Amino acid sequence: MTTPIVTIKQASHSAIVDLKPAALLVNDSLPLQGVAQDQTTYAGGPEIGVWESTPGHFARNVAAQEFCHIIAGECTFTPTDGEAIHLSAGDAVFFPAATQGIWHVTKTLRKTYVIFKA
């Protein structure tokens, strides 16, 4: 079987549906989050999609390796064992497996992502 080619189309305009509060809140902020075009195309393959969060603070809730490209918005990610990283539209970031830290979204953040399941 050939590994399928996976695409995300018009990520900046994908409708985010079913917004829910962040899973791991850090303070009284209540960021809402959702995904679009979320897909895994074969067993054990990576998960890709579009993710969005309104402003607020929350802990990173992904155990696997993840690559993201920021499409819109601004945030700071502070790893548990490192210095704060400012991210905004046009930036890309790779999170090694088990990266923990705090997201502080200051302007509604939209990103495409690839989560590499182990």
Rank of each mutant, 00 (worst) to 15 (best):
A23F: 10
E47L: 15
A97E: 06
T80S: 15
A64E: 15
T41D: 09
W51Y: 04
D28A: 11
M1G: 15
V114A: 13
S29C: 09
V50Y: 02
P31D: 04
L25A: 08
H57R: 08
I70A: 06
A22P: 00
A72I: 04
T54P: 03
W103C: 01
G49Y: 02
P46I: 06
K111N: 05
V26K: 15
F67S: 03
T40M: 12
I85Q: 14
H104Q: 13
G34K: 03
L87F: 08
V6H: 01
V105G: 00
T41Q: 12
F94H: 11
I102S: 02
A23W: 05
Q37F: 03
G90C: 11
T112P: 03
F116N: 02
H69K: 08
V93G: 07
W51E: 01
F116G: 00
I102Q: 11
A11S: 14
P46R: 07
Q33S: 11
D28V: 09
A43P: 14
T106S: 10
P55T: 09
G73P: 03
A63W: 05
L109K: 02
G45S: 05
P21H: 13
T80P: 02
I71Q: 05
A72W: 01
G82W: 04
T7Y: 10
G73T: 06
T54L: 07
E74D: 11
Q100S: 14
I16S: 03
G56L: 04
A97P: 02
H69W: 07
Q65Y: 06
L109N: 00
L30H: 11
D91F: 06
A36G: 10
S53C: 13
L19K: 14
E52N: 07
Q39E: 10
A64S: 12
D18K: 13
P31A: 06
D91E: 10
D38A: 12
V114R: 05
V17L: 12
P21I: 13
E52P: 02
P46L: 14
C75T: 14
T80V: 09
S14P: 03
T54E: 06
V6C: 10
V26E: 15
I85V: 15
E47C: 14
G45I: 00
F94K: 04
V50Q: 01
D18P: 01
Q33M: 14
I85C: 10
E74G: 05
W103Y: 03
G82M: 03
H69Y: 11
Y42D: 08
D81W: 02
D91Q: 09
H86W: 06
L30R: 15
C75V: 08
E66N: 06
I48L: 13
Q33L: 09
G45A: 05
T108F: 02
E47A: 15
T106H: 02
P4H: 09
V50C: 06
P31M: 04
Q10W: 05
T106N: 00
Y42N: 10
L87A: 08
P46F: 14
V114D: 00
G73H: 05
E83V: 09
G90F: 07
F77H: 03
E83H: 11
H86V: 15
E83L: 10
V105F: 06
S29Q: 09
I115Y: 03
I5L: 13
V35T: 15
I5F: 14
A72G: 04
A15H: 13
Q37C: 01
Q33G: 09
K111C: 03
V35Y: 09
L32M: 15
